[in-house]
């Protein structure tokens, strides 16, 4: 065994080589068979046109994902803005958009971390998904963020009734982003949960730009719940997939 690359030659460890000498090696036939399997996987993935999105360089994948969120949010602000958007205090708006946007960006960056780099710990990813739910709840519940709102929930309706349209709208806004993120994903562990966290935050951001209704029950059930449902749904699917393998 060459010592040239060793930082500390440890000749007394030669017994490891000695012990490893009897391990089974791949024969030429094994190599051919294994390569045929790799080739089949490669050909299969190449046959799917949309599957090739994941083969784009990583900076481009991240850019596509973030652009999708920017387009959805900008489209909402331009074509379906909340009635009181002009009266939204700029600093408050910046705090809301900034906190959601920065966490969303972080989720995209970590979700698309290439497999040839050391993996980010599972707990960091779990923490990020939990933080996404936390930020959505904070935006809904922190006092002062929604003091300016133009409308209050209709008291004649049960909380879930006035929250349901917003909840559905948020899910619909997040779904295309989630689908794109999954297409851009290369099968990274926990990727679907981080994609869901980002999509949920995207839906939440859209609601902040679209819905003028305030009140904690509406904001939690109609807005923050979007992130929760995305994350829990994806975590459940992730668990089922892990169990299947």
């Amino acid at each position: 065994m060459s010592e040239a690359l060793r930082d500390e030659p440890e000749p007394e460890l030669a017994f490891l080589d000695d012990l490893d000498a009897g391990a089974a090696e791949l024969s030429a036939g094994d190599l051919d068979a294994l390569f045929a399997d790799v080739r089949a996987d490669v050909d299969k993935s190449g046959a799917r046109r949309l599957g090739r999105l994941a083969e784009q360089p990583t900076p481009r994948r991240r850019l596509f994902a973030l652009l999708c969120f920017v387009l959805i949010a900008a489209g909402t602000a331009a074509f379906s803005p909340r009635a009181d958007l002009a009266g939204f205090p700029p600093l408050t708006l910046a705090a809301v958009v900034g906190s959601i946007g920065s966490l969303l960006t972080l989720a995209v960056v970590i979700a698309f971390r290439p497999i040839y780099l050391p993996a980010v710990s599972r707990w960091t990813k779990v923490g990020l998904a939990v933080a996404a739910i936390g930020v959505a709840l904070a935006v809904a519940l922190l006092p002062g963020l929604h003091d300016h709102v133009a409308a209050r929930p209709d008291q004649a309706l049960a909380p879930w009734q006035h929250a349901l349209p917003c909840f559905g709208f948020g899910l619909l806004a997040g779904l295309p982003a989630y689908a794109l993120l999954r297409l851009l994903d290369r099968g990274a562990p926990f990727g679907r949960v981080l994609a869901a966290a980002a999509a949920g935050l995207g839906g939440n951001l859209v609601l902040e730009l679209h819905c003028p209704v305030g009140g904690p029950s509406h904001l939690v059930l109609g807005h923050a719940m979007v992130v929760l449902v995305f994350v829990l749904g994806a975590a459940l699917v992730e668990r089922l997939v892990v169990r299947r393998h």
């Binding site: 994941a54 360089p57 290439p114």
Partner: peptide, 9 residues
């Protein structure tokens, strides 16, 4: 297979 998928990086 993963190396193939990441080749453009």
């Amino acid at each position: 297979f993963k190396l193939h998928g990441a080749r453009n990086d």
